[in-house]
Write a protein that binds this DNA or RNA. Structure first.
Lengths: 354, 354
DNA sequence: CTGAAAGCGCTAACAG
DNA sequence: CTGTTAGCGCTTTCAG
C-alpha cells in the first residue's frame, strides 16, 4: 500500500494525495475522492518515506535512569500519555543513571534522527551540549544536568556554575543570576527546594538537630537545598540502585548514631532507609524520624505509614512532553516548576534520643 | 554528514563505504581507509535511509498496560536492557489495558514499520491477528491474548478455545491439545498455574476453605488456574487501575464476609487488598490471610510482611526481547515458561474466623 | 488547484 | 574487490 497506488486508484497525482492527507489545499471534490479511496484501501502513509524526506524521525525520545523506580515509571506514563494523545511514537531508553550508557543512548537517538527528547539526565551539561548544538530539542525532567553532587563539598552550587555558563553561552542568552532552582535550560522540575525546606522545618519543629540527607548522586539540587536548609547538615549519597541505596542507608545509620532524623531523597532511598533501620533495630519514629521524598502507594501501607514530600511525577512527564512537542519554533521552551507537598503520616516523632 | 561525503573523502564509492560499515567484504587497505575516514569525520550512518531502503524500522516495539505498575516497569527494564545490548531502539506504548488504545498503538507501530514487537496484550487474538499476518513478529509477555476472564463463567478455558484455532490456522500449524498454560503462540510467561496451585495448597493447609481470587480482567490464565485449583472458588475481577482494584477488593470483602483467605493476582491488587482490609478493620492475618502474586520491595515493609508468589519480571522482558530479536528467520519463536516461587512471610495465618 | 519530477541517505543488484 | 545505478515512500518545489 503506497501513496502511488492510492493516487492511481483515485485518478490523481501522488502530490495531491499527499496534500490531502496532510491537510493541504485541494478542491472539495478531489479531497472527498482521495479520502474515500484512502479509507477504502485503508491506506496508512508510511512513516519511513516521510522521515527520510524530512530528515527527521517524528515522535520523541525519553531517557530515564530506571523504570523499576516507580517515580520514573509515573513520569514515563505522563510522557507516553501525552505522546499518545498526539499520536507520536516514543523511543525509551534506560540509562541506569550512568553517563556512559546515557551517551550511547543519545548516540542512538541521533542515529535515528530523533530531534526531540525529554530526559532525566545522568551526565553533565557537556554530555548534552553536542546533541543540543546539533539541533536536538531537549527538555529535562526531574533534574537538570550538572556535576554529580558530592558528599563533602562546601559549595552547594558547584554543580551549576560552569555548566550554566557554558550552556547559556550556547544560545547567546544573557547570563542570569545563578539559581539552581530554575536555571535557563528548558526543564520541568518539582519544587524540591521548597519541599525540602518545609520538611526540614517540620523536623526542626519536632526538636531534631542532627538531620541527615540520604540522596542520589544525580540530584544535585536536592543536596543543595538540604545544605541550604540545614547549614550543611550531613549528606550521604548513593548511586541509582537498590543495593547502593541500602548500603548507603545502612552506612549512614551505623556511622552516625547521633542522627535522629533522616530525609530520604527518593522512594528507593526511603525504602532502603526503612529496611536498614529495621535491620539495625532502629524504631521509627521513636529512635529515628524519617521523611521520604516522593509519595508512593506503599508509603501508606508501611509500618508506620511514611511521612512524605509528594511530587506530581506524572505531570512532570506530561508537561515535559507538551513542551517538547510544542517546541516546533526556533525558541527554546521555558521551564516549569511544579509544587511539592509535605504529607504528614506517622514516621516522624519528637526527638527523644540523645 | 552523509555516506556520500565519506565516500568522496576516502576516494571510494558509496557502496564500498556501506559494505565496510556493515561488515561486508573489502580489501584490508580499503577497509582501513574507509574506517579511518569515517571515524575522523565521526560519521554515523543515518537510520532513516537504511530504514526506507529496507522497508522496515529497526528495533522493536513494546506495549504494556501501565508503567506505573512496577511489574511492567521491571519487565520493561528487561526489554530495554536486552535492546541496549543489541544497540536497538525501543518504541514503548502504554495501553492502559484497553484494547482500543492497544489497537491505536499497534496502528502506530505499523505506520512506523516496526515489525518486531513484544506485548502484554490487552485485546484478544483478533486484535493481533492482522498485525501478525502482515508480517509482524510478536512475542507476548506475561500473558497471551485471550477473551477477558469473566467472573461467572464455568468454562475455565473459554478464553482460549476459539482464539487458538484461529491463530494456529494462520500458520497452518497442526492443531494441538488446547492447553491454556502454553498454547502455540510465541510467549514468555511466568508459571502462574504452578504458583497459584502452590499458594492454594498452602492456604488449604492452614485450614482455609473459603478462598477468593482478586484478579485482573486481562489475566485469564490466572483465573483459570485458580478455578482449577479451588474447584471454582470465588473470583472477583478488576480492570487495570488502582481505583478499580481498590473498589474490587473492598467489594469483595464487604460482600463475602465468610472469605478467610484471598489471593491477589498482582501487586496492585495486593496493595488494594491491604488498603481495603485496613479500611474495613480486617486484621491480616488474623481475620484474613493474603497472598499476593508478584513480589515487590514494599511487600517486606508492609505490616505484616506479605507472603507472595514471586515471578522473574525482568527476565520475562529480557527473554521476550531475546526471542523477538533472534526471530530473524521465518520460523516463529518458541515459548518460554519461567518459574514462580511462593515466598512465605507474614500475611497468612491459620483459619480462625467462621 | 493539480501533476510531474527531484531527491532525502542508504543498500543491493549488477557490471566491470 | 569495487563502482555505478536504481530505487525504498514520501513531501515539496515548480510549472501548468
Amino acid at each position: 500500500m503506497t501513496i502511488k497506488e492510492v493516487a492511481e486508484a483515485a485518478g490523481v497525482g501522488v502530490a495531491t494525495v499527499s496534500r490531502v492527507l496532510s491537510g493541504g489545499s485541494a478542491s472539495p471534490e478531489t479531497r472527498e475522492r482521495v479520502l474515500a479511496v484512502a479509507a477504502q484501501l485503508d491506506y496508512r502513509p508510511s512513516a519511513l518515506g516521510r522521515n527520510l524526506r524530512q530528515r527527521r524521525t517524528g515522535g520523541m525520545g525519553l531517557l530515564v535512569p530506571d523504570l523499576t523506580d516507580t517515580f520514573y515509571g509515573r513520569l514515563a506514563e505522563g510522557v507516553l500519555s501525552c505522546a499518545r494523545t498526539a499520536g507520536e511514537p516514543v523511543m525509551v531508553g534506560s540509562t541506569g543513571g550512568d553517563p556512559e550508557q546515557e551517551a550511547e543512548l543519545i548516540g542512538m537517538l541521533l542515529e535515528q534522527s530523533v530531534d526531540r527528547v525529554i530526559a532525566v539526565p545522568a551526565g553533565g551539561p557537556d554530555a548534552w551540549a553536542p546533541a543540543i548544538r546539533s539541533g536536538m530539542t531537549v527538555v529535562f525532567a526531574d533534574r537538570l544536568p550538572g556535576e554529580p553532587a558530592s558528599e563533602d563539598s562546601e559549595d552547594s552550587e558547584s554543580g551549576y556554575d560552569e555548566p550554566l555558563d557554558e550552556l547559556e553561552a550556547l544560545d547567546g542568552l544573557p547570563r542570569r543570576a545563578r539559581t539552581p532552582a530554575a536555571p535557563d535550560l528548558p526543564a520541568v522540575l518539582a519544587d524540591d527546594r521548597a519541599g525540602i525546606r518545609t520538611a526540614v522545618r517540620y523536623l526542626r519543629g519536632l526538636g531534631h538537630r542532627e538531620i541527615a540527607f540520604l540522596g542520589n548522586t544525580g540530584h544535585a539540587s536536592r543536596v543543595a537545598a538540604f545544605r541550604e536548609a540545614t547549614d550543611d547538615g550531613l549528606v550521604v549519597l548513593a548511586e541509582v540502585s537498590r543495593d547502593a541505596a541500602y548500603a548507603a542507608a545502612s552506612g549512614l545509620f551505623q556511622s552516625n548514631p547521633d542522627v535522629t532524623a533522616v530525609l530520604a531523597g527518593g522512594n528507593v532511598l526511603g525504602e532502603a532507609a526503612v529496611l536498614a533501620a529495621r535491620e539495625l533495630d532502629l524504631r521509627i519514629p521513636r529512635d529515628l524520624s524519617l521523611i521520604m521524598f516522593d509519595d508512593v502507594p506503599w508509603a501508606e501501607l508501611c509500618a508506620p505509614p511514611l511521612t512524605v514530600i509528594s511530587q506530581p511525577a506524572r505531570d512532570l512527564g506530561y508537561r515535559a512532553a507538551e513542551l517538547v512537542l510544542r517546541a516546533d519554533g526556533r525558541r527554546r521552551p521555558r521551564s516549569v516548576l511544579l509544587p511539592t507537598e509535605l504529607i504528614i503520616r506517622g514516621s516522624c516523632g519528637p526527638r527523644l534520643k540523645k
